[in-house]
């Protein structure tokens, strides 16, 4: 099941390896985010060092895939040919209070014309594209 019509650019791990653990974990229905081994705070997107304490000891850790809607938008005008017949869709910015309030971008599953409340709790939905070349998994969100 795919929220958006196929044909958008497919995500692949960065060639430098910086976000590889995130994608590998998502393929197993697990959310992993970057956490500093020195000051224990999370950061996202991934960086080479901790922006708080400048430690190089930054690794990935499994987290509970839950958060709140920090903001959202309903897109009506497609800017990519793959979405020409898509109709409206919802993008959410999800804040993870258990993870130093880092934010992730995803789509909100369900009716694209549903109302969205800022602050509403959401949980991750792992949208697998196993048959794609290369295969990938998107971390989507659904209302709790």
């Amino acid at each position: 099941m795919s929220y958006l019509n196929p044909g958008l650019p497919k995500p692949v791990p960065a060639p430098d390896g910086l976000d590889s653990p995130f994608w590998e974990a998502a393929s197993r229905d697990v959310l992993m985010l970057q956490r500093c081994g020195t000051c224990n705070e999370f950061q996202w997107g991934p960086e080479w060092i901790c922006h708080r304490c400048h430690s190089e000891d930054v690794g990935f850790e499994e987290v509970r895939p839950v958060g709140n809607v920090y903001s959202y938008e309903r897109v009506w005008h497609p800017v990519h040919p793959a979405l020409k017949d898509q109709g409206p869709y919802i993008i959410v910015l999800v804040e993870l209070p258990e993870c130093s309030n880092v934010r992730l971008v995803g789509n909100l599953m369900g009716d694209p014309e549903q109302s969205v409340e800022i602050g509403a709790p959401v949980q991750a939905f792992f949208e697998h594209h196993r048959d794609a070349e290369p295969p990938f998994t998107l971390v989507q969100w659904e209302k709790v």
Binding site: L4, L8, P9, P11, P13, A14, D19, G45, V79, H80
Partner: peptide, 23 residues
């Protein structure tokens, strides 16, 4: 005002573009 038209995307864009967030 147009999205990237390519097969795959890596880096920061990999965390936004596949969700239709690109313009």
């Amino acid at each position: 005002g147009q999205g990237p038209q390519r097969d795959v995307i890596a880096g920061d864009g990999a965390h936004t573009v596949p969700f239709g967030l690109m313009s």
